[in-house]
Structure formats: C-alpha cells, structure tokens
Design a binder for these strands. Structure first.
Lengths: 347, 347
DNA sequence: CTGTTAGCGCATTCAT
DNA sequence: ATGAATGCGCTAACAG
C-alpha cells in the first residue's frame, strides 16, 4: 500500500500539497494538482483512513448491532441505515449479536474500540442489555435504539407504535367475529413485546372481551420453542381459542408451524394474524394477514437522528430524547378470514 | 474517551506498562497489573483500535461485499463469515453493493482505505467487476470470491459445484417424465449462471433431449423483469414447456409469480425447480422443490481460506489458487411433482 | 499557493 | 520488571 509520502515524492511536491488536493479544502494550482492526481492513479493510492481518523478523531463510521441478520426484518433495516449513512458520507459496520447479551457486550466494546461515532442498537433479549445501554450512554457515545426498546432508560428511539399496531391487528380479528383470541408473545422483558401485549389487551377490553391469563402465551425468541408452546396450548382442545395473534415474525412462523403440525387449518380451525410478513404472500398459501412494519424507514430515520446527534455534539442530547413512532400497516389476507367488508384493505 | 496515558497516570505507571498488561506479551508484577486493571475499569477505557492499527499495520478486520442483503441467501453467508472470523479474533465489515458496479467500486475503495486485511467478494453483475477484481488482486490484498465467480481471473473461490447442482435439479425433472424443460437464468455474464446453464444442458443431453434456444430464458437479476419475461414466454401457449428450472432464488420467485399471474398451477400445468429455497416450504403451498446451497458453510470456509492467505503473507498465493466446490442438496417437494420413488428425499 | 511541522494513541525497541 | 523514546500516515495550523 502506498503512502501519501510516496505520492508526494512521485509528484515532486510536499505531503501537505497532496493532502490539500485530496481534501480540496485548500486551493492548489492546476499543474501541481494534475501531477498529484496522476501520481495517485499510478500508485493506486488509497488514503489511509486509519491514520486520518487518528488525526481528525473522526471515523465517519457508524455501528449497527442487530440480534440476527437472518431474520428478514433486519436486513431491510440495515439497508435503510446504509442508505442514510451513505448520504452523509458515513459507512456502517453491521454486526450480529446473535441475540446473546454476552456477545452483544463484546460487540459493543469492539465498536467502541473501533471508535465508531454512533451506534444503532436493537438490543438482545435479556436483562443485562439495559445495563449495557446505560453504560454506553454514560460514555457519551450517541446511541439510537431501534425496534426493541430497553425499558427504563432514556435513549433516542425509532420503532413502530407497537401498541396501536397490535391493537389494529387484534381489532381486525374481533371484527371478523372472533371473541376468544390468544396472543403469542416473545419475552415480555422486551419493552416492545409488552407494548404489543398492551395493544392486544386494549382491543379486547374495548370489545368487552375478557383476557384470562391462559390466553397469553409467552415464549422466548427461538422458533422451536414457540412451536412447542403453541402445540401444547392448541392440543388442550377443550378450550382452544378461535384466533391467534403473534407479536413478531419468529412467533408467527412458530405459530403457523404448530397449527400445521396439529393438523389444523387456518383460518377455518383457527385464524392467525402476525406482526411482520412471513413470506411472499401473494403466491403462497395460506397467505398470512400481518401487521407490517416499515423496516427500511426505521433504519433510515434512526440513522438520520443518530447523525444529527453526532453533528450537534451529542451533549445537546440529555433531556431531549427523540422518540419516533412510525405507523404500521395491516395487510389483510386469508389467514384471518379476509376483510369484513368486500373491499379488502390488503394487496 | 480515555486514553492509555490517562490509565497510566491513574495507575501511577508508564504507558508502556499499561500496554504490557493489555497485550499480555510482557510480564508485569501482580500489584502493578492490578492497579492498571482497576484504572481501566474506572475509566471505562477502550483501547483505541485506530491507533493500534496504525502502529501495528494490522486491523484484524475483514470486508465482505455482497450484492443485496435482503436476499435470504446472503445473510446466511455473512453469518458463516462472522463466525469464522470471530474464531480468529477478526471482525467483518459487511457492505451492500446494491448489485451495482459503480457502488461496488466505491465500496471496495472504502474497504481498502479502511485497510481491511482481506476481502470476501460476491461480485455485482456486469462486466466491470472483472477489472475491479483484477485491480484488487494486483494490489496484493487477499481476496476470496464467493458464489458468483468473475470469469477469466485467477482468484480463490468458494461456491457450490454449480454445474453438478443444476444437473441434479434438471435430472430430477427429467426423471419425473418432463421432456420439454425451460431454464430461467440470470445474466450469463456471471460465471455461475453459465455453469448452471451448462449443468442443465448436460442433463438434457444425457437424456437425449434437445435444447433449442427458445428454452433458454436469460433475465437480469431484477425480479420484476424475470416475471415479465416468464409471462411472455408462458403465454405463447402453443409450445409451453412442461417444466421450468430457475437458476437462483430471485429467478425462482419471479417464475412462481409469473406462473400464478398466468393462472397456471404447479406442478399440474408446469413443474418448477429452483436454486435456493424460496420460503418455509413445510408450511406453505405450493412447496417448491429446490437445489439448496450450504450458505453458512460457504461463508465460513471462504473466511477460513482468506485468513489463511492473510497469515501466510498473501504472496504465497500466486499460482496456487484454491477453488472449493461444496455440494448442494436437492430438496424434492410438490412443485416438481414429488419424488419418482415413494421414498421422498426431501423433508 | 506551497512547504514544514507537531501531534493523534498506541506498540515496541532499547535502556535501565 | 519497568520506563523513555520513536514513529506508524495523516491533517491542520502556520510560515513563507
């Protein structure tokens, strides 16, 4: 790898001049500029971002930590973040925490060592995440939380209005005549899972429907476990609910598998609405009604906010947390029995 | 952010000593070590990776460039790469090229500026990628190409045995009685698409079946375009093929949409086998028979090779290119009419 | 307009 | 076992 010095030597100028033509902040005469540019080309010179960062104390790099890249929701978020970052000359380092708090701790530490200028974080489930976020904030490093919000800590955040979104999904089931609706949630230690549960309860209460504990099925985030839980619940056939609301894509997939495993049909035997889309719904059956989050937008907006914080020096932050709540969309398809009115709201 | 100097001051030692306890390369007495560790904890000190890299000329970072994170195949590859890298104390920077050569050029340049020690590359489609890879190799930076191999350039590579894999898929269709089988490919400028086409032709020829040009449908990589192409072909109903083989997931999805749009059924009207899985096949209908690539393994092994190159100093490379070819698996499901024998090979 | 120079934070000799 | 000093490649402030 060639250095700025080699470029300077070849062009017969000082390194200062080379630096000037690269940054463009200081005017350089045409002939010199051309000689420098030519030398850069010939040497295939790539400015050492490491050295530059050390000097300027700016890396123009953001970190984004997500629990699992293979869940379709997250790559979309990352794309949104990348796009927004690129617009401002930043690049993003995407890292998987494997939804594991220990790994998340390592990853955050790594990112801090890398001196990223800000972090987009979708916390791993578990109670230590809270402390990790708190420590992060204490350090003054700008952080924006996405999707899953750690409870009890003041931090900028972007996500859908979980309560309203869940309420919308459940209300749809109610409007389709269901009265005994179960909810399958991820760990309620996650704030957004709580919110979705609240939305569910609100919809039920508004309709005057009871919410006995036996209708709230709390799973962890592993699909297999959700399947097991659902199968157990569904098999106690005496009091099987007529509809099921799943609070995220993994739960939704688990619910569907359980339903199929139990030999049930949807929506005939049990209706299903889930957060997040399960798959290309227009070609596969059963098509699943779902509450769709604007994933790309979430990543994009979160990044805009993060960059704003970075530019305004981060300390302006305290006491003025931003909390963006984006609207989700209800896509009505077959699994919920379709629209009540003949004009379907879905695709 | 605190520096090593602050730690040294608080612990009452020199920065050299702090460096020693951190790296562990030089023995330090217990009492001093403890004081240093305590200072590190109190200051929430994170070693400046930037400065360290500048000094050691090692970033312990790999770059991975992929065309589109939202295609399910790629996140799995990245996970494999991350896991392998982590094992060796490396981290990976995953960046999306948006399957755009221009952006890919920028991204590669960025990665070089960041001084990543090696690059995992899934090239964007288009002819300039070749030149980009050539230039990259010329620079001496270790590169391993995954999945899509740029033709005509000597580079380490890891992918499935595309020809054999495609042949397997097509043979399955032939065994199910199909004689007029069309192939839907991505751009044939991509080497692996060519290979898959070759596998298709080989299977056809072995069965004594003709391969007129009208059976080879070459699309670009955009799903909408694949849909259009397929619909046009399928609607010339007079000579519609009885089966279709799609060479990647995007093509497969496009083919399926076209089939549905045309009001056709699979496998009744037309059978379908595709590279890559389209979705959770055990719960959705129609379930699609597919040639499944070991995505995680591809990422993992490519990273192992890359790290080996890095450790062996890269120059050992020339003239001894590694070309790993992993086996793909045929998952037989409904869209191809199921297994010929009653014992299904698929799940 | 162009060149010179002082660090950025750290790992690493080399003394002690 | 510990510390002092050097320089990695670059930007920015300053001098000319």
């Amino acid at each position: 790898m060639s250095t700025i010095k080699q470029v300077a030597d070849m062009a017969g100028v000082s390194i200062g001049t080379v630096s000037h033509v690269i940054s463009g902040t200081v005017p350089v005469s045409e002939p010199l500029k051309n000689r420098v540019l030519e030398a850069i080309r010939l040497l295939d010179y790539h400015p050492n971002h490491i050295a530059r960062s050390l000097k300027t104390r700016k890396t123009r790099t953001l970190g984004i930590v997500i629990p699992d890249m293979t869940i379709p929701f997250f790559p979309k978020v990352i794309r949104g973040a990348e796009t927004a970052a690129q617009k401002h000359g930043y690049s993003v380092m995407a890292i998987d925490s494997n939804d594991d708090e220990k790994r998340q701790g390592e990853v955050l530490s790594l990112l801090r060592s890398q001196r990223v200028e800000g972090i987009l974080l979708v916390v791993a489930s578990g109670d230590d995440s809270l402390a990790q976020v708190a420590r992060l904030l204490e350090s003054g490093l700008p952080v924006v939380c996405l999707d899953r919000l750690p409870g009890g800590v003041e931090v900028d955040s972007v996500c859908v209005d979980d309560k309203v979104a869940a309420e919308m999904g459940v209300r749809h089931l109610i409007e389709n005549g269901h009265r005994k609706i179960a909810i399958l949630t991820g760990p309620l230690s996650l704030r957004n899972e709580q919110e979705r549960l609240r939305g569910y309860k609100k919809a039920m209460q508004k309709a005057g429907l009871p919410v006995p504990a036996e209708l709230v099925w709390e799973a962890n985030l592993r699909q297999e476990d959700a399947v097991e839980l659902c199968k157990r619940k569904l098999n106690s056939a005496s009091n099987r609910p007529s509809a099921l609301f799943a609070t995220n894509g993994v739960m939704g997939m688990g619910a569907l598998r359980a339903i199929v495993d139990c030999g049930l049909q949807t929506p005939a035997d049990i209706a299903l609405v889930t957060f997040d889309e399960l798959t290309a719904e227009d070609v596969f059956r059963p098509s699943i009604s779902s509450v769709v989050q604007p994933a790309y937008e979430i990543g994009f907006q979160a990044t805009e906010i993060l960059l704003q914080r970075i530019q305004s020096g981060a300390e302006a932050a305290v006491g003025a947390r931003v909390a963006v709540r984006l609207p989700a969309t209800l896509k009505i398809r077959e699994s919920s029995g379709g629209a009540t009115a003949p004009t379907a709201a879905g695709t």
